[in-house]
């Protein structure tokens, strides 16, 4: 099951997502990251180094965060992409947008 750890240091928010990000866990993540980008946040980093499964809901969660960051002029970054996850990001063609 998916695990998230959200941490903020100054204007940098880092979300560490590990394990499974399926339809159920993604909706959980959606809720938890609802009001994440408020205030003085300037950078959002998703660390998915420990993520080994992502479904389309997870992708949509990433997309929502990307769009929100863009709307608020926040820099969006995904780090630690494993090959299996990259394949999924490639298929949904968001890797080119994220520049990863």
């Amino acid at each position: 099951m998916g695990n998230y750890k959200i941490s903020q240091k100054e204007d940098i928010v880092t979300v560490i997502i590990s394990g499974h990000l399926d339809t159920l866990t993604a909706s959980q993540l959606d809720i938890e990251t609802q009001n994440l980008l408020s205030g003085a946040v300037r950078h959002l980093t998703l660390d998915i180094n420990q993520l080994d499964y992502i479904s389309s809901s997870g992708i949509r969660c990433f997309v929502r965060l990307f769009n929100e960051a863009k709307a608020n002029g926040i820099e969006f970054k995904i780090i630690g992409i494993q090959p299996a996850i990259r394949e999924i990001l490639d298929i949904t063609r968001i890797s080119q947008v994220l520049g990863v």
Binding site: S56, I59, N67, K70, I91, T92, V97
Partner: peptide
């Protein structure tokens, strides 16, 4: 393009897309 005219990522169809591709 996965992006709309304003540079936002479009939403929808990822599930079927993934299923068909995988």
């Amino acid at each position: 393009s996965p992006l709309d005219e304003n540079g936002f990522l479009k939403v929808g169809g990822e599930g079927i897309n993934l299923m068909m591709n995988l």
